[in-house]
Design a binder for these strands. Structure first.
Ligand code: FES
Ligand code: FES
Lengths: 147, 147
DNA sequence: ACAATGCTGACCAAGTTGGTCGAGAATAAC
DNA sequence: GTTATTCTCGACCAACTTGGTCAGCATTGT
């Protein structure tokens, strides 16, 4: 359901969010920090740029930056950009919202219900929240600096 | 996430549940009623039999039957039998339940949360409920018999 | 001019999906 | 015990997806 496209793409956005305000971040840095193949990451960044999540600049000192505050990037839009539809099964899409009951299959309502719930939850989670949790976890693991 | 294996397999179980108590149901009947390739259905029934959801008998008059009441067949077990793990992403499995925080990726908690929720919901839905809903829908569509 | 950096599309190996096919095994009916 | 019926099992297949790699081009700072 979620391939490395979505996973790596979100990792990249987290990285950009962490280093926001420090000027453009280069793909090589993202790739090495987040353990992603550099040339594969290219394609993911291209997709994120096409959909307006990041801004890129070429030439020396170039790189990538978030186009919006991390708090305004919700996981739902990001993942749908990277993965296409997140539908758990082919016959369910987000625009088949209402009571359009397909008479073919008696289990469609299950997937529609689960899909709607998932999309709702993903829309609530922002990249900023992911960064917060990551940093909170890092502090919990290594509090040795405060000795 | 859910391929035709799971979809067709559940359709077949619904069919068996509808015709429960009428003796063994032949795969050709299931296939034609539920629009499934007959020889493909073979493999799905084999898997369902291996995991004890159905019972099969050979020879003339043979066929397949539910091994348990439809109310005791929950969608979670059936789908995990047919599809393998339903995890939305590779690094999340059902037995990584507790606080085993993988330090690699800052979004694992999202998938863990969604996955747990999904499994909980699927465990609540039985094949019997699918049959009920299907029949309720059929009556809603064609109430013309009561004229 | 040149070096650094991003952009793009072609290409590729491995795995998954959604089947098909054919040989065989069990069993009921005759 | 022969035959027709039905399930069983494994091999095989074409198309597609995944997770990349690579070469070449475009842009820009120095
Ligand atoms: S065809 Fe969509 S749920 Fe079965
Ligand atoms: S590696 Fe599992 S969520 Fe990123």
């Amino acid at each position: 359901m979620i391939s490395t496209k979505g996973d790596y793409g979100v990792r990249a956005l987290i990285d950009l969010a962490v280093h926001a305000g420090e000027g453009p971040v280069q793909r090589a840095d993202i790739a090495s920090r987040r353990h992603i193949s550099e040339s594969y990451l290219d394609h993911l960044l291209a997709q994120l740029r096409r959909d307006g999540f990041i801004r890129s600049t070429r030439g020396p000192g170039g790189g990538h930056e978030l186009a919006k505050p991390a708090a305004d990037l919700c996981l739902l839009h990001v993942l749908e950009s990277l993965e296409g539809s997140l539908a758990p099964i082919g016959c369910v899409h987000e625009d088949s919202a209402d009571d359009e009951h397909d008479p073919l299959c008696g289990q469609q309502w299950v997937w529609r219900e689960l899909y709607d719930g998932m999309r709702e939850r993903l829309a609530e989670i922002s990249v900023a929240e992911l960064v917060e949790r990551e940093q909170a976890r890092e502090q919990a693991i290594a509090p040795s600096y405060s000795i």
